[in-house]
Amino acid sequence: MKTLLVKDYRILMTQKKSLLILLIVGVVMMISNLEIDFLTGYMMMMAMVLSLGTVNYDELDNGMAFIMTLPANRKTYAVEKYVLTLINIVACAVMMLVIYFITKGFINWQFGTGDMVSVTAGWICGIMIAASVMIPLYLKFGAEKRRVIMMLLWGIVAVIAIGGQKLAEVMAGTEAMNAINGFFTKISTLPVGVVVLAVIAVVAMAVILSLGISVGIMKKKEF
């Protein structure tokens, strides 16, 4: 694991320009009065994309074959991509929280400290679920196919989001919609601790399931 983490961080360090652009966009967003919750999500999403991008670097010039001769096996390779992503998004979350605390004295953020912490934790969970979908796809498909699949995936997400919104509008006031609203109302009345545990359980299940699939993909691969 250490071998692979050092390799990936060395590769990430070669992408200083990308990191710089990422930070500049973040600063521009901040200046443009965008809310800190969105900015945090954006930065963490980018941290995930950069982490997954290390798979592209590994595959360049048939590099995977050599990586598999280092003291790391196929399973460790898959696990390391989850660990790398988690480390990077948590580091990004911590960085955003620090920025929040530093700037809250002179920027009138809409979010209070408690809300900011909750939103950041929510982003970590959401992005880990996104990573759970994307990591197996990254490991299964080559760069070309991956691009097409990612576009399809984002398309599906957009259709579900827009379709869901339209459906909610159409169904407004119906018995089914009232039942759904009732469900969410019930959830919101649950103690915070229960909700947090439930969310953590869902995220953990998604990651474990995804990890199992990724390990299976790696074990079947030929280099």
């Binding site: 390799k7 590769i11 590099g63 074959a65 280099f223």
Partner: peptide, 11 residues
Amino acid sequence: VLTESGFSGYL
């Protein structure tokens, strides 16, 4: 040593 594989060229 593998003939067509090695450390990433970006390193």
